[in-house]
């Protein structure tokens, strides 16, 4: 076990360094730099002004020096400074992190829990009407562009019915505190979480259904059935438990893709999360910030997958880490 962890951490180190390198050089291929973006937005610039900006940003240095400095800072867990935003990258990310975690957490929770229930129901009635309806719906959600769902939900629930706010995370002007604030955030969270959740809901529903059907064919289920165990008990105790293993795996894999989906949802709902921040950092050539976000999200993915491996051993004692 300890050997496994040590080796994993070593591998993680390599992966993380690789990510930093790829990101750094890829992003430096981009035409134009942060000074040009700022000058562009200003609608006016002089050569002196551009030079002053470049010097301030540290982008007047040779590329290899910038890279060495970046890696050096990373090793001391310093993500650098966003000159554009006038703030350390870590601080900027800390500000946006709660919103991101809230959105990702709630949409993932929604997708996994509802996905398991629907997948379970569909598998239990495989081939029947209920299965067809659930499978079709899941497929429809999967096939509809996420942003389109988002805009339509806004049209129906915010504009037409006026039940939920259009966007943002809080009603700032109301100045809520405590529980009122939590309720307010929850109201703002509903539509973005549902929009992002629906896509992944489809994935988990299909996954649970497929893996339950697979488990149904296994020997131990046949044995249980032969022994006269009730179908409901078979489904919940024997089949579902085993079918959850792929769900855990997928959870680890989906984690990195959900940040991409978050870019779209955060755009539609003005949700102040990291996905949108990364998107804007890319267009502003705010490389320190973008690198910081990509780096940290990679780190999270790596560690979650490590955790998934560990959870695996708990769910299924037959699996050993080697």
């Amino acid at each position: 076990m300890r050997r496994y962890l040590r080796r994993s951490l070593w591998q993680i180190g390599i992966v993380v360094l690789g990510i930093a390198t790829i990101n750094f050089f890829l992003l430096h291929l981009a035409p134009g730099d942060a000074a040009e973006v700022m000058a562009g937005e200003s609608g006016a610039a002089t050569a002196e002004y551009m030079a002053a900006l470049r010097q301030q940003f540290g982008i007047d240095q040779p590329l290899y020096l910038q890279f060495l400095r970046y890696v050096g800072h990373l090793l001391t867990l310093d993500l650098g400074y966003s000159f554009r935003e006038g703030m350390p990258v870590a601080e900027l990310m800390r500000q946006r992190l709660p919103a991101t975690l809230l959105l990702m957490g709630s949409s993932t929770a929604l997708a996994v829990s509802l996905g398991c229930v629907l997948g379970f129901m569909a598998a239990r009635r495989a081939g029947k009407i209920a299965d067809t309806v659930i499978s079709t719906l899941a497929l429809l959600f999967y096939a509809t562009p996420v942003f389109w769902v988002g805009v339509m939900l806004v049209m129906v629930f915010s504009v037409a019915l006026d039940w939920l706010p259009i966007g943002g995370m809080t009603s700032i002007e109301a100045g809520y505190r405590g529980w009122a604030l939590a309720g307010d955030v929850a109201r703002h969270l509903v539509l973005p979480a549902v929009t992002l959740g629906l896509f992944y809901l489809a994935i988990y529903t299909r996954l649970v259904r497929a893996s339950m059907l697979e488990v149904y064919h296994l020997d131990f289920v046949r044995t249980a059935r032969a022994k006269g165990v009730r179908p409901w008990r078979i489904a919940t105790r024997h089949v579902l438990r085993n079918a959850l293993l792929p769900v855990v795996t997928t959870l680890g894999v989906q984690l990195s893709s959900i940040l991409g989906g978050a870019v779209l949802v955060e755009t539609v709902f003005s949700w102040p999360g990291l996905g949108r921040l990364a998107f804007e950092a890319l267009f502003h050539r705010d490389l320190a910030l973008l690198l910081g976000i990509l780096f940290c999200s990679s780190l999270v993915v790596v560690f979650v997958n490590l955790a998934v491996d560990l959870i695996y051993t708990l769910l299924d004692p037959r699996i050993e880490l080697s």
Binding site: V159, D162, G168, I172, E173, E266, V268, R276
Partner: peptide, 22 residues
């Protein structure tokens, strides 16, 4: 009393917010 400048990246969402009076 106060001016609250809100950042709303999506144009359609901006239109909705104005129409709704937010």
């Amino acid at each position: 009393d106060r001016i609250l400048f809100r950042i709303i990246p999506d144009p359609a969402a901006r239109a909705a917010a104005v129409e709704k009076g937010e």
